[in-house]
Design a binder for these strands. Structure first.
Lengths: 189, 189
DNA sequence: CTAAAAGTGTTCGAAAATCAGACAAATCAC
DNA sequence: GTGATTTGTCTGATTTTCGAACACTTTTAG
């Protein structure tokens, strides 16, 4: 039940993706690298893309994942940035190698749900109705994802903290949200 | 064939040995830590002491292990010292927890064979006969093991490189070897 | 000190995971 | 273009992992 072999396969892939572009990596390379039978690869993954998908999920989970334990969104986000910067992960290489859209979709999906949950939990008593909350979550999601992607595509150069600061909205914890023709300002602790 | 589970068990043990003394660690603790069935532990190890033995072998192999790829003994030894200092390993804790003799025997055994091979390979043309070579290996072994153990028992404090320098014999690559009543000086490149 | 709780080491058989070897089809390298 | 490599899939054998049970010893708590 404890699938250490699966993890070994993923780790081998991460290793390889750090060494050469994705299209130069074969299933055989991966199983050779970690000393596992090729059939075992197919036991866990339909094909190499299934592995990529799963890795994306794992890494995005790590990057923009669990926001619990953080007091503010900024903390969670900056921690995520740190994680990406330290780069145990091949996600940057994956991003370059495969497709921006793929990354974008995953980041979007993961981030949106996390943000949504966060807002629901933390901002329930701010009198925003369900629709407002979802819109708010969308707003934050696109802000965060867009920023991370830009940063990634630029080779992770520059001071991300400074960028966050420039964006302001994240750092001061205020979001100005315009709905049709009414305007609300919501404080997210 | 790919025993990732076994490695996971060993890693869990290393983790735990870094957290509390050996006699406060149970088999159950180990398998719980890495999420493995208790029977699986007994599948790989007769008991917790068998695990300790194997870990010793692994770690000493890492510490004083492969000397190939080094030009001189000094390089190999100082690299070993670095390895211990970085301490990914619980060997220091193990050493404190269990028994000095156990460590000593393992270090002795591993080191002696490595040194012997090294000398046989590198110093074959120095006109020393088989007996001389073995004696030389013994000398180096005790010097190295004694030093490492002392260093370990002192909590790995102080500058090991300086200690090696003080010992001299290792750093200048010369060993003065006295056999019965004849005296030889042998240069080990 | 004693009773309850936890841990040990071993058994059994079931279930899951890994393997080796083969195959046609697709793709790559030159 | 063709020869070599990779892919995805299939079989069935083998190994590994599991769950549950058991008598036994050790540890913990009152």
């Amino acid at each position: 039940m404890a699938q250490f072999t699966k993890k070994a396969i993923i780790d081998a892939f991460i290793e390889l993706i750090g060494e050469r572009p994705f299209d130069k990596i074969t299933v055989k390379d991966i199983v050779t690298r970690c000393g596992v039978n090729r059939n075992t690869f197919y036991y866990y993954f339909e094909d190499i893309y299934a592995l990529v998908d799963e890795l994306f999920q794992i890494e995005t989970q790590n990057i923009l994942g669990d926001t619990s334990g953080f007091d503010t969104w900024q903390d969670a986000f900056l921690k995520a940035v740190d994680f990406v910067r330290q780069n145990r992960l091949g996600i940057y290489h994956l991003y370059k190698s495969i497709s921006r859209e793929r990354v974008e979709n995953y980041l979007d999906e993961v981030t949106y749900n996390n943000i949504l949950n966060f807002i629901k939990k933390e901002a329930r008593d701010i009198a925003a109705d369900e629709f407002d909350i979802e819109l708010m979550a969308r707003f934050y999601t696109h802000a965060l994802v867009g920023m991370v992607l830009e940063w990634l595509s630029g080779g992770m150069k520059g001071d991300m903290n400074a960028a966050v600061e420039r964006l302001g909205v994240l750092l001061d914890g205020n979001i100005r949200l315009t709905l049709s023709n009414s305007e609300k300002t919501v404080q997210i602790k």
